[in-house]
Amino acid sequence: MFVSIFILTLLVVTAITIARIGDLWAAVMFTGIFSFLGACWMLILDAPDVAFTEAAVGAGVSTFLMLGTLALAGKTEKPTTSSSVVPLFVVAVTGAALIYGTLDMPHFGDPNSPVQTRIEPSFMEKSQSDMHGLPNVVTALLASYRGYDTLGETAVIFTAGIAVILILRRSNDGFKSNDVFNSQSNSRKGSQ
């Protein structure tokens, strides 16, 4: 209980810091911390697999990628001039809606919530008989019942991979940068 309140408080503090901080390096670091804290909390919530993944992917890979980008693209954020009233309003409305929505939700940890009771026999038992006793049910599910989502996930990664290659590879073979596309003369002028 207290541990989770502690972690939740830290999470909120981190999130607000990320929102306020102007130095992008620091913001990225805090994002990593945020992910890490999130992972800790997931561990408390009995989701070790997600926690490990989040720690590896959220705190690790994505921080790494962002730092890489920062190295290429500059590290400080210019203070925004535009008013933040509209975004604040939007966020307030969305948040209020969500909180309103929680009021009818089953309480935290309620064993009678539909999530726990709807599927009968539960995934735990079903996977035991279907998988002949594979201990980690999450893995079992990932590979079996929802294996198709996993395939989709692989496709997403594959898509992103090709996309990144497509975007970053700059090849102008045989291309004169004429005004083929827009008379508004937007030929690519690299920063270099």
């Binding site: 997600v50 959220g58 999530v115 726990q116 995934f123 929802r146």
Partner: peptide, 20 residues
């Protein structure tokens, strides 16, 4: 008593989608 594994499964996918 086990916590429900399905959200974990879904979120593994979601995290990967997020990083992509």
């Amino acid at each position: 008593i086990y916590s429900n594994p399905l959200p974990s499964v879904l979120m593994l996918t979601a995290i990967v989608v997020g990083i992509a």
